[in-house]
Design a protein around this nucleic acid. Sequence first.
DNA 1: ATTCATTTTTGTAATCATTTCAATTTTGTT
DNA 2: AACAAAATTGAAATGATTACAAAAATGAAT
Lengths: 134, 134
Amino acid sequence: MNARQILEDAGVRPSVQRLAVMDYLATHKTHPTVDEIYSALAPSIPTLSKTTVYNTLKLFVENGVTQMLTIDEQNSRYDADVSPHAHFLCSKCGKVYDLQFVDFANTLPEEIDGHAIKEVYQFFKGICSCCAEK
Amino acid sequence: MNARQILEDAGVRPSVQRLAVMDYLATHKTHPTVDEIYSALAPSIPTLSKTTVYNTLKLFVENGVTQMLTIDEQNSRYDADVSPHAHFLCSKCGKVYDLQFVDFANTLPEEIDGHAIKEVYQFFKGICSCCAEK
DNA sequence: ATTCATTTTTGTAATCATTTCAATTTTGTT
DNA sequence: AACAAAATTGAAATGATTACAAAAATGAAT
């Protein structure tokens, strides 16, 4: 599904900037920060403002087409894959990897201890296989 | 186990400030922010500096006697309970609750996809039972 | 097409959590 | 008591994020 489709389905007006951000997220599954997104898009959209990237991502999160990851203390990271999956942050290289949800992939509870659950995040931290080899 | 014991076992020198922070964490399982800890302790330790609270918590995390939670985007929160357990953040009242780890409590993998796992965080967000009643 | 209202984008300035850093104080050892 | 090392402190810097108001773009109605 392309960026325009995703936005239209969510009822988000597909402006040039929004399409660019969604397209970037959809094609770069690296869980980029605001800065990374801004730096990547600024050359092709010279008038782009970092505020717009912030606004856009906030809108995406509100409309459920993107999730914000707080796995990294320094920067928020964003992921257009909103299906349930876990994340791994390498403490050495800082890369964030996608992982399958551990154990309860198909049995996500709607409630725990009487608390209604809307969002679930599973974060792992350690050294990635790539960094371990060295 | 009291605060002094915890610090001594971890090889952390038990200064007045460190004892106060650890004692606060051990007796207030509310996952407080730096500000909350500082505000709570400042009256009884008039010379206390917020920097000291930051330094102390960093030291605690490095020595494995406290974990930092990034469940709340705005502030880091701290928990002296380092046993594996999950957290629930209420989007309405902002409180963070302890939960039991879902499903893999006793089967925490040491490695996933070749990545060596050092830390695991499981965050849930939604509306807590308390807020739902109203 | 033109007007007008609404929405979106933009840049600047403000906010606020966290870090840096150097000076001071405290602590432990001789 | 004297000294070195460690801990604390406060002020200033950093840096991500937000607030805000002006400018630009869009869409609907005429």
